[in-house]
Write a protein that binds this DNA or RNA. Structure first.
Lengths: 300, 300
DNA sequence: ATTATCCATATATAAAACATATGAATATTG
DNA sequence: CAATATTCATATGTTTTATATATGGATAAT
């Protein structure tokens, strides 16, 4: 039995007339009669009663009719689902981000835009540390991750630079340097206790800041390290020191912390990157990465 | 797209190996490769990634795999359902009976036996008057009906005689003729007020009894007619007269009524018949009629 | 480096779907 | 009631399509 038999059968059942059904199907009457007969022979069931003015379903035929229509419907749906999946319009995409990423409006904006353009794709969002994110992407539990690091030792994971933002100095409220709105020079911080975010392993913002200080001619006084960028701000609010954070962290609006721009430090930038596998990722995930990269190009 | 494509696709997906799948399907590898490729071309979707050691489903392929299996399952079920219906093992049968029929153990026995041998057929049972039953059978709202009449004017309805039972005299408790257990002669009732069941139209037990009395040489004193056999017994219990009922009515065990056998009246019998359409009835209904007729042959 | 494995391609063959012509049965119409 | 029309069934030829055989190319295993 083939789908052709079902299609033919359903049409004949609907028309109750083999000749008309053949016309609708774009074939001639004799082959249609033969196909219906072949179906009946294979099932060993009489599906139609032949009448001089047409044909009429038997009880068994009625049962088969209901089922055949359902099957043909399901075939259509399977087709549509498969094609949507192939086009990346359906499926699941798992997106990760470090704690600092969502503060930049770019990230929620890209997610919203993807939701709008791909309503049948379910998006799973997960916050985690950079190394966990990269490992998850490599292990195929995650499709892409917004991170700050530029490079990784995980082969098979590509890191696409989206854009970079400036740093701001984050000072405790009432700090001497916070008295005016004017930009602060990096060297003004040379004797301030510095709090820095540091990844468990690999290069990151920590190294960027350190080398910028070195280039400015001083070695900073690092009093404390924190595992997340956001927690450095908590420590600043507690008055334990100052820190440098990506400009988007201003969105955090943390009580007891004031932000001041930095004077002329073009090499001191915080990039936002998107990590994904080099191969083997779903069409929907590809669509997400594409959208993120093209949107980033427009933003900068 | 044909079911063949789905069957081939599912096998290849299960084996992840075209050559092995071809072996399982009993065909050669090249045609199988071609069929899979044709499927991919028609869907315009890549379903497998070809690897040097076999093949592997793509995301879209996985979606299609799930659907394809469901479809093939449904095809099998449709087949089974249709064949069961054709064999009368599935469906609905509507059975009617006059009020007197279920008193004979034959009727509940046949219904029980049919339920046992056709567990997937749902049986609907309806009690009604003879003319309603025959009309329902003719109008295809009912498949078969147990009635007492032998004939009908409804063309298209066949009446199969199942068996006949003797009549009993039903007397009010304390009636003179009820004093002994001995059989009563029909002529003993010649001066008794007689209560008789009478159909709205057409010949029935009424005529049988009347002609038996005539043959015995008297015209009975009919004081009352009742629309149901059971209600004649109520009138007897109330002392309004005597009646003759089919022997199985003894089962009614009505208070105030005693039953006595009749002496040598071979022509005075109450038949039980089964009415059904001559043509156009479902296989399951045919099975029921068959069972009733063969069981009846065993009983008599 | 060699061999084995596995899928793809090219071509031939077998099967099956389809078309055409015609017959048989039963309504419909004059 | 005869004649016609309608509709499905059957017979046979044609085309399409699925399958088989032979072989090549790519990649992993030895």
């Amino acid at each position: 039995m083939e789908l052709r038999h079902l299609r033919y059968f359903v049409t004949v059942a609907e028309e109750e007339h083999i000749t008309r059904a053949a016309e609708r199907l774009g074939i001639q009457q004799p082959p249609l009669s033969l196909q219906i007969r072949a179906l009946e022979t294979e099932l060993d069931v009489q599906l139609f009663r032949r009448k001089p003015r047409g044909v009429e379903l038997t009880d068994a035929g009625r049962i088969f009719f209901d089922d055949a229509r359902k099957i043909l419907d399901q075939v259509d749906q399977a087709l549509a689902r498969t094609q949507r999946t192939a086009r990346g319009e359906q499926g699941t995409v798992v997106i990760g981000f470090t704690s600092s990423a969502p503060f930049h409006p770019f990230v929620p904006e890209v997610i919203r835009a993807f939701r709008d353009s791909h309503p049948l794709v379910s998006l799973e969002l997960k916050e985690a540390g950079t190394s966990e994110l990269v490992a998850a992407v490599e292990g195929e539990q995650m499709d892409a991750a917004f991170i700050r690091s530029q490079s990784t030792d995980a082969t098979g994971v590509a890191i696409h630079r989206l854009f970079a933002e400036k740093f701001l100095a984050a000072l405790p409220a009432g700090h001497a340097l916070a008295s005016s709105d004017k930009p602060i020079a990096l060297t003004d911080l040379r004797h301030e206790p510095l709090i820095l975010y540091r990844r468990v392993s690999g290069p990151g913002l920590y190294d960027t800041i350190l080398s910028a200080c070195q280039r400015a001619g001083f070695s900073p006084d690092i009093t404390q390290e924190a595992p997340q960028i956001v927690s450095t701000l908590n420590l600043v609010a507690a008055g334990l020191g100052v820190t440098l954070v990506p400009a988007s962290l201003r969105q955090a609006r943390m009580v007891g912390v004031v932000f001041r721009p930095l004077k002329s430090t073009p090499e001191l930038t915080a990039p936002l990157n998107l990590a994904c596998r080099k191969v083997d990722y779903s069409e929907a995930a590809k669509r997400f990465v594409e959208l993120a990269r093209t949107t980033a190009r427009l933003v900068t």
